[in-house]
């Protein structure tokens, strides 16, 4: 059974239609890359799937692991195993990473019918996952993302993903603006977390990330829907030729 099935999804923000009949199926164990020019609807897709109420879904269906995703509140989606790595992670002064993660892990474990972790096991989990993304030792006490560099914020997203162990993770331009070292750390974190049971949707502008996280499928999103799908060779082609040839082809059609 597929993990995520999106059928004819339409969504708008304020009065602007952004997604116009978006379709996608993701199976466990797969990595899908979604590429596309600015304004094509990539981040809208991520926001809509995570449950951001600024976006209005005007049509279509989303099935997530047998359940109607669009009926769920953002926290229910998270508890069911959906994770969004934000393009622009939010700074939350005064809330420490450790308190934040303790609350989040407790909610998710409760939902899965697991016993709460005791303090020792929780800290051990923090330590293990922190090392995965090479975050420095004093992360726990620091306020969430406050004063973090761009790279640290993105690594913190991957760290949170590792802590919450989702079935489906959506990475919204996690690579944008990263130097090569940070990119390598982020990618290797993702690769270590990848199993045959979970799946990733990697939204990106740049083919560079896909050298490190190798996708099973590459989709081109343009004007609110997928206009082309292929394998990783499609990403290379896009890198070389840009998006204009696709736009031209569509204009001719």
């Amino acid at each position: 059974m597929s993990l995520l099935t999106i059928k004819n999804l339409n969504a708008r923000v304020e009065d602007k239609e952004i997604l116009k009949g978006f379709n996608l199926t993701v199976n466990p164990g797969e990595v899908h890359a979604i590429m596309g020019p600015n304004g094509s609807g990539k981040s809208t897709l991520a926001s809509v799937l995570a449950g951001n109420e600024s976006y209005e879904v005007t049509g279509g269906e989303v099935d997530f692991d047998g359940k109607n995703l669009l009926d769920m509140a953002p926290e229910e989606r998270a508890r069911e195993g959906l994770f969004l790595a934000f393009q622009y992670p939010i700074e939350i002064p005064g809330v420490s990473n450790v308190n934040f993660m303790r609350s989040a892990v407790a909610e998710i474990r409760k939902h899965r019918g697991l016993e709460p972790l005791d303090a020792k096991d929780f800290l051990a989990l923090m330590k293990e996952k922190k090392e995965l993304v090479e975050l420095s030792g004093n992360l726990a006490g620091r306020s969430v993302n406050e004063g973090f560099s761009g790279g640290e914020k993105k690594r913190n997203e991957i760290f949170q993903m590792a802590m919450l162990d989702p079935k489906l993770a959506i990475l919204d331009e996690t690579d944008s603006g990263l130097d090569i070292d940070a990119l390598r750390i982020v990618a290797s974190g993702v690769n270590k977390l990848k199993t045959k049971d979970n799946a990733f949707i990697v939204i990106t502008h740049y083919q560079r990330l896909l050298d490190h996280i190798v996708p099973d499928f590459v989709h081109v999103l343009y004007n609110g829907k997928i206009v082309r799908s292929g394998t990783k060779e499609l990403a290379l082609e896009l890198e070389e030729k840009g998006y204009d040839w696709i736009k031209e082809e569509l204009a001719e059609a």
Binding site: A73, F86, G94, V95, F100, S103
Partner: peptide, 24 residues
Amino acid sequence: EAVFYLRTRGLDEFGATALLLSAF
């Protein structure tokens, strides 16, 4: 935005609000 961010990590609206207010 902060409330939404916390909710995407599994906290409900009240839990997210309470966490932000206690930080405040």
